[in-house]
């Protein structure tokens, strides 16, 4: 295959990944790495570099829209970014020592977990539980708009949430993903933030987390221009279009389709990892 054809196919694939990722809310970064390694036989390290770059593009590109809605909790985001960036630098330092087969297996497990979570509906939790003393000290509690007007919420489990965010940072660097699913888990389940606040604050954090390890990977040669350019432009274009045509009605079917794709890729990654063929 010539470089031109590869770039074209990668761009089209990345566009589809960005579009589906935005429409389903599952993020496009998750399928970029398996697509590049399984379909196009690209080395896992180049795939991770290109994917991280596309993750930054979607997170920063969407930032203005998310903040406008008034859900993002900037203090929670910045505070937890201490954990995610530390985790990302740790992951980037470890990446050179972990065999690619082990990374492929980890990737498969994260994909399976994502598919599993996408079938669960989230439950609302009470917002007026007594706050974690640490959250009061750090003034993490805030307000957000609901149909009944502005509502206040308190923040729980700060230490456990912080620890989970470190894990999210490590995974983001090792696998080249945004790890939004772990970030939302930490904020929604552990810190008991409202779901909408968790998802938007997670998006706010993803670009910063990815930038920490992308800087390191740039030095190490993971970010190959010929591969990163079609992937970045494709995912960004797809995500921007997806955000524009987003309409609640058809996303359930799309989510199902996307979940099936994710499961197939998960099994393929696990198989390749166990066979040691990556």
């Amino acid at each position: 295959m010539t470089l031109g054809l590869l770039a074209l196919l990668l761009g089209v694939g990345a566009f589809g990944a960005g579009l589906l990722g935005a429409l389903t809310g599952l993020g496009g970064g998750l399928v970029v790495v398996p697509m590049m390694t399984i379909l196009f036989h690209v080395d896992l390290r180049y795939a991770i570099g290109a994917s991280l770059v596309s993750v930054i593009a979607t997170s920063s590109g969407a930032a203005a829209a998310y903040v406008r809605e008034g859900f993002t909790n900037v203090r929670v985001g910045i505070f937890l970014e201490v954990a995610t960036t530390t985790g990302a630098l740790t992951g980037a330092a470890l990446a050179g020592f972990i065999p690619t087969a082990a990374l492929a297996i980890m990737f498969g497990l994260v994909l399976l977990y994502t598919a599993f979570r996408s079938f669960q509906s989230h439950e609302d939790h009470p917002l007026d539980l007594p706050a974690d003393p640490l959250a009061i000290k750090l003034r993490l509690g805030s307000t957000y708009p609901t149909r009944e007007g502005i509502r206040a919420y308190s923040v729980q489990g700060v230490k456990a949430g912080f620890a989970l965010m470190f894990v999210a940072g490590v995974l983001s660097a090792l696998l080249g993903i945004g790890s939004g699913i772990v970030k939302v888990l930490a904020m929604d389940r552990t810190m008991k933030l409202p779901f909408k606040v968790s998802t938007t604050t997670s998006n706010f954090m993803i670009g910063v987390t990815a930038a920490a390890s992308a800087g390191v990977y740039l030095h190490r040669g993971y970010i190959e221009p010929a591969l990163a350019f079609p992937v970045m432009l494709g995912v960004l274009g797809g995500a921007l279009l997806g955000a524009r045509i987003l309409s609640g009605a058809k996303t359930i079917l799309l989510r199902r389709i996307f979940t099936v794709v994710v499961v197939i890729l998960a099994l393929e990654m696990l198989y390749k990892g166990i066979k040691g063929a990556l």
């Binding site: 295959m1 010539t2 470089l3 031109g4 054809l5 590869l6 770039a7 196009f40 036989h41 690209v42 080395d43 390290r45 180049y46 740039l218 030095h219 190490r220 040669g221 970010i223 190959e224 221009p225 010929a226 591969l227």
Partner: peptide, 21 residues
């Protein structure tokens, strides 16, 4: 370089030109 064959199956390590800002 569009018409040269693409091969990224093996990681080549850092490119001396592109490794730092």
């Amino acid at each position: 370089y569009g018409s040269i064959p693409a091969n990224f199956a093996r990681f080549k390590g850092e490119d001396p030109v592109l490794k730092s800002v």
